[in-house]
Design a protein around this nucleic acid. Structure first.
Length: 478
RNA sequence: GGCGGGGUAGCCAAGUGGUAAGGCAGGGCUCUGCAAAAGCCUUAUGCGUCGGUUCAAUUCCGACCCUCGCCUCCA
């Protein structure tokens, strides 16, 4: 079974074949955050999707080189730096730190490379120079440099690879910035923006004068620097298809670093948006949740991760608090099954033959092979959970089989990244264990008034008693 | 206006030319001193509407309705 991905370039499913002739190394670049504010949960959907892809690639035996950039210089950031009378670094650093804390909280593995735009100015300048030398970019009077789509097309390139474009239909931007009056054509975009007084201290020297990079150029410069002029996978949110990714292709291929017949990126993958009450979650609409908002409501990172991973990445997904409650219950079902398996397995070695769990990894892998069909993958997991529960209830499962089931789960959970859940049994404070024992004695003596009082006392301390066939156990509430 | 997605049970969400995965919620049952928790079972004659093709369509084709996104900063 091979991995198939939906490539935005062809608008169809394609078999994933890495550029690496050995079929081992895979370069993937994911457009990361612009650190002008806290990222919202919609932003994180894309990063969790990227994390799933990276984990699945590794699970499938590839060596993933995962790059995620941090855009730490951009119009909005500069505005705020100025408004707060601070420096670029002082402004962005806390948001960047918060971003990675959030990413970790959501169970995402840290990308292998995290380049910052401000640390790649030399590469950016170099790339712009290459474009100027090839006649695809031009400097205007104020010192800004623009990419010429006309020259690019004249050179035989196609602009509009990721989507159909009708140049006559391109709506004239109502917000054509006043500092872009030198452009030859409305569709041309800035590679380098000349320094203006409002930029304050945010500028770098360049052959065209002081200024700063345009929005799209940093991704081209950093991805090609770290992954080479041609690499396998580039992902981002669907709103980046145009103009950001289209422009990246133009800049990167226009500079001509690729070997003949090679493209900048082989597979483009785009994640759909998170919706809130049917509308795109966005800063401008104000209908967004940050991770902090949700943690503040008592939800955990893994519950949020689970919800984000419950729907296919190419479908827009309605994010609700009810959904989050559902995620909690669903995860609880998995956690409880794992806990029962753990109790049963004890220190037993895994069974060598295990019909119960043998199909789990294959089922999940097969589902994910189909363009990361997580919904189907979870269906496989939940069917397995039910089978395990049934077998345990019927006492048809040996400790060895339980151990093997746990091993099977741990293997596929390296892909889902949900962790094994809180092993609450292990962390019960001794005094509460003593109370539990007291309650058992009271029950034995049929002193239910006392046993119920102890139960209430435990509940007041945030612990719930679960009476099971194997005796009572304590579970932390919420 | 141009382009691209969607419309599947109360909610979320897979999927298929051959008769509807999974999760949540609901209902029933088991366990229990009672309860809770947990578990098991159950829940769409139906897949936006209307036509067409076919032995057979939710799945293909056409029209229409609704909805979301991109075309402007944006995951």
């Amino acid at each position: 079974m091979s991995f198939w991905v939906f490539n935005t370039l062809s608008r169809s499913l394609e078999e994933f074949v890495p550029l690496d002739p050995l079929g081992k190394k895979v370069g993937m670049y994911c457009c990361g955050p612009t650190v002008h504010d806290f990222a919202h949960i919609g932003n994180f959907r894309t990063f969790v999707f990227a994390d799933l892809l990276r984990r699945f690639l590794e699970h499938s035996g590839y060596e993933a080189r995962h790059v995620m950039n941090v855009t730490d210089v951009e119009d909005k950031i500069i505005q705020r730096v100025r408004a707060r009378e601070t420096t670029l670094k002082a402004y962005t650093a806390p948001y960047e730190e918060a971003f990675f804390t959030d990413l970790e909280c959501l169970g995402c593995l840290k990308p292998g490379h995290i380049p910052r735009a401000t640390e790649f100015i030399a590469e950016i300048v170099q790339l712009i120079e290459a474009l100027i030398n090839r006649g695809m970019a031009y400097r205007v009077e104020d010192g800004s440099v623009y990419f010429s789509i006309e020259k690019y097309r004249e050179a035989g390139f196609q602009y509009g690879r990721l989507l159909k474009l009708d140049f006559d239909q391109l709506r004239q931007g109502e917000r054509v910035a006043s500092d872009e009056y030198g452009k030859e054509s409305i569709a041309d975009f800035a590679l380098w923006k000349a320094r203006v007084p409002e930029d304050g201290g945010v500028f770098w020297p360049s052959p065209w004068g002081e200024g700063r990079p345009g929005w799209h150029i940093e991704c081209s410069a950093m991805s090609m620097k770290l992954l080479g002029p041609s690499f396998d996978l580039h992902l981002g949110g669907e709103d980046l298809v145009f103009p950001h990714h289209e422009d990246e292709i133009a800049q990167s291929e226009g500079a001509g670093g690729q070997c003949p017949g090679c493209r900048f990126v082989k597979y483009w993958m785009h994640g759909a948006h998170l919706l809130v009450e049917g509308k795109k979650m966005s800063k401008s609409l104000g209908n967004y949740f940050t991770l902090r908002d949700l943690l503040g409501k008592g939800f955990s990172g893994r519950e949020i991760r689970f919800l984000l991973l419950s729907a296919h990445y190419r479908e827009s997904f309605n994010f609700t608090l009810e959904g989050l409650h559902g995620a909690r219950s669903a995860l609880g079902r998995i956690d409880d099954c794992l806990m029962r398996l753990r109790e049963l397995a004890g220190a037993a070695p895994a069974a060598t033959e295990d019909r119960l769990s043998a199909g789990l990894a294959a089922g999940v892998g097969g589902a994910l092979d189909h363009d990361l069909n997580v919904s189907q993958a979870w269906a496989v997991v939940f069917e397995w959970v039910r089978e395990c529960n049934r077998a345990m209830s019927a006492k048809l499962i040996s400790p060895e089989m339980a151990a093997s089931a746990l091993a099977a789960w741990s293997c596929i959970d390296r892909v889902f990244g949900m962790g094994t859940g809180s092993s609450s049994a292990a962390t019960v404070p001794p005094e509460l264990e003593a109370m539990l024992a007291d309650r058992q004695e009271a029950r034995k003596a049929r002193d239910f008034k006392r046993s119920d009082a102890i139960r209430d006392a435990l509940k007041a301390q945030g612990w719930m008693i679960e009476d099971t066939a194997n005796g009572p156990r304590l579970k932390k509430l919420g």
